[in-house]
């Protein structure tokens, strides 16, 4: 059974995304909305890790060698300026997309396993991950013309 592997990926991925949101918040603190929103979203990621606890208890979380290629890289540093903001938010978008799909796949398995509790966990967490993606997309779209056309 490989579900445990995917739950492990999810847990690790949420930790990575949470710390990446924090990284971007502090790296772009002068963008006040980015600062406050990213910190709020990081807290959501923390809550997702906690929400996974019962699933980990039930299924374990092996870190299998096979899906290693799916490991998500977090952000280790932030770039500066308008274009830097764009690229950092873009990176967050990729990470969150990766998690969005991971939640979807775990949700599919939970349905197959008739695990009602797991289905609920996935629904509520993935709903927030979708919200994170929607915010990132809204913010990126607003920032792009200025950053790509006018900024120094």
């Amino acid at each position: 059974m490989h579900l445990a592997t995917y739950i492990g990926l999810l847990e690790q991925g949420e930790r990575t995304l949470g710390s990446s949101f924090r990284q971007v918040a502090h790296g772009h603190a002068e963008e006040a909305d980015v600062f406050h929103t990213c910190l709020n979203l990081a807290a959501q990621c923390d809550a997702h890790v906690e929400a996974l606890a019962p699933a980990i208890e039930r299924y374990g979380e092996h870190k299998d060698a096979e899906p290693e290629r799916l490991h998500a890289e977090g952000l280790s540093e932030t770039r500066s300026g308008g274009i830097g903001l764009l690229r950092d938010l873009h990176d967050l978008y990729l990470l969150a997309s990766y998690l969005d799909m991971a939640w979807t796949l775990v949700g599919q398995a939970a349905k197959g396993a008739r695990d009602t509790e797991m289905i609920q966990i996935v629904d509520s967490c993935d709903h927030e991950t979708t919200g994170q993606l929607a915010w990132l997309k809204t913010r990126l779209k607003a920032a792009a013309p200025q950053a790509l056309l006018v900024a120094d």
Binding site: E30, E31, A32, D33, G82, K141, A142, Q146, A151, D152
Partner: peptide, 20 residues
């Protein structure tokens, strides 16, 4: 109309960065 028109706080941020 590619995004909502820019709000004041962002407008001053662009001015701060020099792109406005």
């Amino acid at each position: 109309h590619w995004s909502p028109p820019t709000h004041a706080m962002q407008l001053f941020r662009y001015a701060e960065q020099g792109s406005v």
